[in-house]
Amino acid sequence: MTTKFTPDHEYIRVEGATGIVGITPYAQNALGDIVFVELPSVGKVLKKGDEAAVVESVKAASEIYAPVSGTVTEVNSALSGEPGLINTDPEAAGWIYKISIANAGELDGLLDAVAYADLTK
């Protein structure tokens, strides 16, 4: 199981051909209290870099981009009732959507944990 990161602070946890996407603890802290999450539709086809979801804090809306190309297979509907899960548990209960990875090669272009930690120093 590998986790990769984008410079925009999304993570993708790779489990076989599926990636679980969310935002990093650094990102949730920077955004502050999340009050609304706009989830993608299951079946939506995304290209790497497409807007996949929107998270809203009290003050502002932030786009969440697709770290890789693929098709949305599942969304975390718990976020509709409890968007704050992204603040309290961004890497587990606060995941946003799952994507079937179209091209595993795209993962190589993302940051590993060390490079991402370096970026947010």
Partner: peptide, 11 residues
Amino acid sequence: VQYNTGIMGEH
């Protein structure tokens, strides 16, 4: 814009 408490808590 906020302190450690966060906007919701401060509000």
